[in-house]
Design a protein around this nucleic acid. Structure first.
Length: 238
DNA sequence: CGTGTGATCTCCT
DNA sequence: GGAGATCACACGC
C-alpha cells in the first residue's frame, strides 16, 4: 500500500498490495477488496476487474469460528491444498462439473482461509471478456447476448471472463505475473453485508454474514439461499 | 418471473 | 450414491 484517499470523512489506502494485505484472515480482507482492481494477463490479452462482491471462508487453523461452509473446514485434501499456502496466493477450484472459482488465499502458511471473488465490473479487456463468455454459451442469439454488467456476475462467470482455470492458475502467487492487484477501497457506507450465497446449513445463514458487496451495483449477483440454510428464500440482494 | 434440469468434478458417507 | 461456494436453458403461470 502506498497512498491514502479520503472522501466525506472516510479514508482508505490505495496502491499495489503486498503480502501483508492478506493478513490476518479472509474475514478482514473480504470487505477491503471491494473496489480494488484485479487484473489477469494471458497470451490473448489482459482483463481487468473492479471487485464488487466477495465472500470470506475460514478453515483449518483459523482463529475465528468454525466454518462448516469452507472447503478446508476439517483437513487438507488434494483439492483445497492451495488454501494452506502463504497469504497472497490463488486457490482455484472446479465445481458442479462445469465452473471454476477464484479465491485469494489469506492468513499465514498452513492456516487455511480465503476470499471468494464472486463478482466484478470488467474495466479492461472488455472485448476479450465478451469473447470468452460468449464462447462458453451453447447458443448465442441477439436476445440472450450477455450484457456487460453480467460478464463477471457470479464466480463461474467471473472465472470464465478472466480466463482462469484450475490447471493454469491454482496455487500461483498473486503478487506476480499473470496477476496484478491494486487496492482502491470504497467508503464503508457503500458496503453491504449478509449471508453467503448458496452455502448449505447454518453456514449459509445469518450467523455467518460473510458476504460483502457494493450497494446497488448492477454487477453484484443475486442472492440464493443454500440447501437447509436458515434464510427466507428470495430476501436480501445487492 | 418462478421452478426444474443438465453439465459430470471432488469429497464424504 | 449424493451433495455442492454454479449457470443457462426450457418450461409454465
Amino acid at each position: 500500500m502506498q497512498g491514502e484517499k479520503a472522501w466525506k470523512g472516510t479514508r482508505w489506502h490505495t496502491g499495489v498490495v503486498d503480502r501483508s494485505f492478506f493478513m490476518p484472515d479472509a474475514l478482514s480482507v473480504a470487505p477491503r477488496l471491494l473496489g480494488s482492481i484485479l487484473s489477469v494477463d494471458s497470451p490473448q490479452g489482459l482483463v481487468g476487474l473492479r471487485i464488487t462482491e466477495t465472500e470470506a471462508y475460514l478453515g483449518v487453523g483459523s482463529t475465528g469460528p468454525y466454518d462448516p461452509g469452507s472447503h478446508s473446514k476439517d483437513r487438507k485434501t488434494a483439492r483445497n491444498a492451495s488454501m494452506f499456502l502463504p497469504p497472497g496466493h490463488a486457490y482455484v477450484y472446479f465445481t458442479y462439473g462445469m465452473h471454476f472459482a477464484l479465491n485469494l488465499v489469506c492468513s499465514q502458511e498452513h492456516v487455511a482461509s480465503g476470499v471468494l471473488i464472486r463478482s466484478g465490473q470488467i474495466v479492461q479487456g472488455l472485448d476479450l471478456a465478451r469473447e470468452r463468455r460468449h464462447a462458453k454459451q451453447s447458443t448465442r442469439s441477439a436476445s440472450n447476448y450477455v450484457k456487460d454488467a453480467q460478464l463477471a456476475r457470479g464466480p463461474g462467470n467471473l472465472a470464465a471472463a478472466m480466463g482462469i482455470t484450475r490447471e493454469s492458475h491454482d496455487g500461483l502467487d498473486l503478487l506476480a505475473e499473470p496477476f496484478h492487484i491494486v487496492q482502491s477501497g470504497v467508503a464503508e457506507s457503500d458496503i453491504a453485508r449478509g449471508p453467503r450465497v448458496g452455502v448449505a446449513g447454518v453456514a449459509g445463514g445469518p450467523a455467518y454474514p460473510w458476504r460483502f458487496w457494493l450497494k446497488g451495483d448492477p454487477t453484484v449477483s443475486a442472492f440464493r439461499p443454500g440447501r437447509d440454510a436458515p434464510v427466507p428464500p428470495g430476501k436480501p440482494r445487492g
